[in-house]
């Protein structure tokens, strides 16, 4: 069975993500420390709230370097909501320095009629990707956030989907085995469960493959 480690750093609702991944056919382990995800097939970093406190918790638990190393090695990774934003260099929300895997920053949504952006919205895909296999083009997913990632120069091609709330923002990214979604698949009904099942399938396939495509990670 595919083992998915969900990083538990005190970032809110883990019941839903655990249940949704289990429903998608994975064996889920909640990882408090790096040694508890070393032998997993895939890593999921969920999270809501502000970047600063989240990074402080990740660092206190010694998780920052192991997560960067995991991604650099080309092992399957999914960041959800704040877990996507943390992949970039920093956040305008509180000035936090984040994981710095990808070039770019987390910025406040521009021209939004109301913030936070709460509710179901369309995810406009920019290209075909197995994460969205079997999901209708105009499917709605559940969002709850005020900030979103703005990939910088050097992150060309990382954008997988965009969403409109006033202005347009990045709602999904993917590069090799690295993926991130700004919405909450674990709270997005049947389509969300399908996306998570697709991720579990990708993790399983990666586990069976002998070679990995390493992901270029920004130097520290």
């Amino acid at each position: 069975m595919t083992r998915i480690a969900v990083v538990d750093y005190g970032a809110g609702n883990l019941v839903s993500i655990e249940q949704a991944l289990s429903a998608a056919g994975a064996e889920v382990v909640l990882a408090h420390r790096a040694d508890s995800f070393a032998d997993a097939d895939a890593l999921v970093v969920p999270g809501v709230g502000a970047a600063g406190p989240a990074m402080a918790r990740l660092r206190r638990r010694g998780l920052e370097a192991p997560i960067r190393a995991w991604i650099a090695a080309g092992r399957p990774f999914l960041g959800i909501c704040l877990g996507l934003q943390l992949l970039f260099e920093g956040s305008d929300e509180d000035g936090a320095v984040t994981l710095g895997v990808l070039p770019g920053r987390t910025v406040r949504l521009s021209d939004a009629p109301r913030l936070p952006h709460i509710g179901w919205n369309q995810v406009e895909r920019q290209r075909v990707h197995p994460l969205f296999a079997g999901i209708e083009e105009d499917a709605d997913f559940y969002f709850v956030h005020s900030y979103a990632a703005a990939p910088g120069p050097g992150a060309d091609g990382v954008i997988l989907a965009q969403t409109t709330h006033g202005g347009r923002f990045v709602s999904a990214i993917a590069r090799a085995s690295l993926a991130g979604v700004q919405f909450h698949p674990e709270r997005s009904g049947r389509d969300g469960l399908r996306l998570l099942a697709n991720f579990v399938g990708l993790a399983q396939a990666a586990g069976a493959a002998s070679d990995r495509t390493h992901v270029p990670v920004l130097a520290r």
Binding site: G12, V48, A50, P116, V144, H145, S146
Partner: peptide, 8 residues
Amino acid sequence: ARRFGSQA
């Protein structure tokens, strides 16, 4: 709000 974010 400071601990969990305004969205929660």
